[in-house]
Write a protein that binds this DNA or RNA. Structure first.
Lengths: 188, 188, 188, 188
DNA sequence: ACTGGCGGGACGTCCCGTTGAT
DNA sequence: ATCAACGGGACGTCCCGCCAGT
């Protein structure tokens, strides 16, 4: 095939990404064999690796999509909003998230790159909380850094729970508890 | 063949397990090749597979050790005590536990087996909290189930954070915050 | 499509051939990937395969160029003149000719085709030597066939040496020796 | 299978080497696919790469065998004796020889390693010729270095010819000519 | 005339687990 | 109980050539 219009190409790329997400979520990075990627994308090795230099690049592209999404939600609605969104997400998204965490451990290059994204999200959350303190909605007896760390802990824990497939009936109540914990007027 | 006394045999098994833990922590499940396990254990392929049917069994045996340890700590000191213990553990191994999470999603057999361990820990935590409520140290405006879910979320989130290698200076403050959140007289 | 004038087309073909020669010389036949040929020719996959059915054809076309050149040199100046020319050629390409030797062993079709070219060179050399005998400059105690075989052996040996990159300071002296060996009045 | 006696292992290794020689001779280094090596050796990938770290090592082991053989023949009987031996050799031997020459070009590491062997053979040939000069059987009007270069050229040329499968009826006569060329009393 | 997306098939490597031999 | 020789499969990569499209 010849030079295709840019949007067609982008669509093709997106298709492959979506299918790869499913595969990575189901089997993990190592477990998602190229053969499996072929099956899931419906395209050949040649096609896949025409669009991405290798499996790693495919994975990183997915991780970046996720990070960007999360960053936007956090920036718009804060970390708790991001938590409330988690259960409604494509379970594949969570699985890939899990894979990211796993790879952070063993791949220092990836870790360095990833840290920038985490930092961006953290900063964004801090700004929101500081603004909340100024507006009198967020408790002021603790530094925002501590509150953000707390929220990130809960966020990641929730992501793991959902990724592991645990259906949590208490979820709403727990998120309410978390929210109260950071509010100024959190009642008991 | 020189059937060894049962305790020697158990010791051998334990040696292999310990070495395997190191290897898994360093390289992850898939990254810890059998060759690496040989190097780390100082024993040959045959010896390893004599004591464990396959790599997976080795991994699960380790995961079970962990689950048992955690269960004991939770039973003695509660989930928050378990959290305070986490930073002292090998972060590499904490990361490996993420492999468990993925397996939970995709392997129903494993999930059923593992759920029993989680349930045990959950139940134990619930009992402690209920006792706390009776003793007037734990808030009573929320069901213990909600509190336990909350604590488990934080626990898992903390494990992920530590596994990812993020050194968190706020950690103590955050754990204090978590503790206050479940206490009856949590001050602001 | 804009069918180009025949000479433009031939020039394009020649360009590709020249670039391919460079690539083959640098990396050998198998080492010169089509991607590398693209890079070196500055043309796309499609363009290359538009002019040549496959990589093999490209290679053989180059080999035939060489054979023709050599045939002409031999015809004009004899095998020893051809030897004296060898050091000025691209050693890389000389090495690639070793690929021809292997192909000769294992591909009977190719061998039959190639033999014609060798025969032409051999015949031409024989004629020159016979003429030399008639003129009294070439020794007559041995049949020309033997002398030609001798010279071809040295020629090929020299090609291998140069291809292997051995810079031989003795070269001139050796070629003088070879020349004396076939001359009538070869002095000691 | 367990630890085998050393000689059994050596025999196994030798079997693999012999079969690999055939494959390399027929298809060249790159052309001798691992699948082909499996077929020819009658052993599995696992077995082959248990004895040799990779294809390269297998090839180098063969090349070293050849170099050692040649070195011994040259050391005992000189380069011309080595030439006379060439036509009687396993054609595979020659094919591998050809592959060595091809790889000298593109692999500098291999080249450096190989040069030592060539030097050893060259030195050995020089000593023989010097001794011949002292004994009055080798011509003294040319330095031994030149004579050795000459002989090596012919040797390599002959190897290529035979490897290419050219049946040379003149061979004996040519070798006689070569021998006369280096003898003191070479008659015309 | 030329492009490049793509198929699909090996490639060499390596890995896990079996098994016969100590 | 332990060892290592081995089978055999699958891995990610990459390569060549086709052909639909410009």
């Amino acid at each position: 095939m010849p030079r295709l219009p840019a949007d067609t190409l982008a669509a093709r790329r997106a298709e492959i990404l979506a299918a790869a997400r499913t595969a990575f979520a189901k089997f993990g990075f190592e477990g998602a064999t190229v053969r499996e990627l072929e099956r899931e994308t419906g395209r050949s090795r040649g096609a896949i690796f025409h669009h991405f230099p290798d499996k790693e690049a495919l994975f990183l592209a997915l991780a970046e999509q996720d990070a960007a999404n999360t960053a936007e939600v956090v920036s718009n609605g804060g970390l708790i909003a991001a938590m409330r969104r988690l259960p409604n997400l494509d379970p594949g998204w969570l699985g890939v998230n899990l894979e990211v965490a796993r790879r952070l451990r063993t791949d220092p290059t990836f870790r360095a790159d990833w840290q920038r994204r985490i930092d961006a999200i953290t900063r964004s959350a801090q700004q929101r909380l500081a603004a909340g303190q100024a507006a009198g909605t967020v408790r002021e007896d603790l530094p925002v850094a501590t509150l953000v760390t707390f929220l990130r802990l809960v966020y990641d824990g929730l992501a793991v729970h959902l990724a592991a497939g645990a259906p949590d009936p208490d979820l709403e109540a727990v998120l309410d508890l978390v929210e109260q914990t950071v509010r100024k007027d959190g009642q008991r």
